[in-house]
Amino acid sequence: MVAAAVDHGAENRAAGGRQSEAIWAVLEAVPDPEIPVVSVVDLGIVREVDAQSGRVVLTPTYTGCPATLVIENMVRGALDEAGFVDVRIETTLSPPWTTDWISDVGKRKLRDYGIAPPRGRGERSVECPQCGSAETQEISRFGSTPCKALWRCCSCAEPFDLFKCH
């Protein structure tokens, strides 16, 4: 399977008009319910904003992610509050979300929050988000949510979450 690394969300944003930009700004203030330091835009799950036809397209991170519905409700609330009551929310499964779509800002926010951001392609080591050491090891393939694995730092002995490459 070819990894869909092209971020059409970012491309789409660059192409939008002023009205679309206003909607993007609203979405930037909607936090992910499980990792509230990053917004839904940082996470790359906003795939399209089309002010002309009045729609916002979201994609789920994981198939069974229970936050999907919550996110939709939060986006709805934020759009309504900003006066975009006529903007529809649609969801799409294809192309499937990948951690490549998490923005650099999003990755920095994750690290500051204590979650190691997903590794880039070909990157093997994981840096401890607390002390920066690369002496780390996996404790469990699955962590507190489907998108995270449990790791520990061998230098500072702190356990931490790693956002899994997906």
């Binding site: 399977m1 789920p60 198939t63 499964l93 294809s94 192309p95 499937p96 979300w97 489907p146 997906h166």
Partner: peptide
């Protein structure tokens, strides 16, 4: 689409 989404998991 569902298969492509789920296969990674």
């Amino acid at each position: 689409a569902v298969a492509a989404k789920a296969v990674k998991e």
